[in-house]
């Protein structure tokens, strides 16, 4: 039979094991709560986790990726330049920059291009500035830029001119309108058949000449509150 020390140890172990394995008396409130918690809590976590994937709004892949709706064939078929910029310095030291939204080279001849939403700026060596904006423009043979479609010219002399068509020579500072021009400035409202801006060669002064019939309306009293 086993030594005397084994027996008490065995009996002691057996009673402790005996307590955990089979429950004889009913669980206390707290133990029951823990037992239920061990079941309910994992289930709750499972439910929460599923709302992230099962219940979430379906993201529509097509809408979430923004892409331009431009006509791809047109872009491919028509060779065009976006935001072209043309800059030149004239013989009398004036800088000319012409830029536009888009410019499409003219299939007919290679050194011509038509541009949309054209903007031209001329700064003479004396510091006088002319800004012209037009709907359409063409640069012909590196000589002349033609602006067409309600051309709006503002000058640093305080004049604002509107005409239908205007040309700006790229070799020297010379702006001429090819249509009737309406101007508004310190002198009042001017309406003329043609307008030409050129730089006098000797004095280098910038002269604005209204030609082919000029009509000026000057309101003495209105100039005070302008």
């Amino acid at each position: 039979m086993a030594g005397p020390c084994a027996l008490p140890y065995g009996r002691h172990m057996r009673t402790r094991l005996h307590a955990t394995q089979s429950r004889t008396q009913p669980l206390s409130g707290y133990s029951r709560f823990v037992a239920w918690a061990k079941i309910l809590l994992p289930l709750a976590s499972l439910a929460l986790l599923s709302t992230v994937f099962l219940v979430a709004r379906q993201a529509d892949p097509a809408k979430s990726i923004p892409f331009a709706k431009t006509d791809v064939e047109a872009l491919a078929r028509e060779p065009r330049v976006t935001a072209p910029l043309y800059a030149a310095v004239t013989r009398d030291g004036a800088t000319i920059t012409v830029s536009a939204d888009t410019a499409t080279p003219d299939p007919a001849s290679e050194d011509q291009a038509t541009a949309r939403k054209v903007w031209a700026r001329i700064q003479t060596s004396e510091g006088i500035e002319y800004n012209a904006v037009a709907e359409e423009g063409r640069i012909e043979g590196n000589e002349i830029a033609i602006l067409r479609g309600n051309v709006d010219i503002t000058t640093s002399l305080g004049y604002r001119l509107r005409t239908e068509e205007m040309t700006a020579e790229l070799g020297m500072t010379r702006l001429t309108t090819r249509a009737e021009v309406d101007a508004d400035g310190p002198l009042g409202e001017i309406n003329a058949g043609r307008m030409e801006v050129r730089t006098e060669d000797v004095t280098n002064a910038s002269v604005m000449v209204f030609k082919d019939g000029v009509r000026l309306i000057y309101r003495p009293s209105s100039t005070d509150d302008r």
Partner: peptide
């Protein structure tokens, strides 16, 4: 009336910025 609008018509008007002249 001194403040009535003044109207000037001519064949040509030259506005020069250097010496601030305008000549009809």
């Amino acid at each position: 009336d001194r403040d009535a609008p003044v109207e000037v018509t001519a064949d040509q008007l030259a506005v020069s910025d250097a010496d601030d002249t305008a000549i009809f």
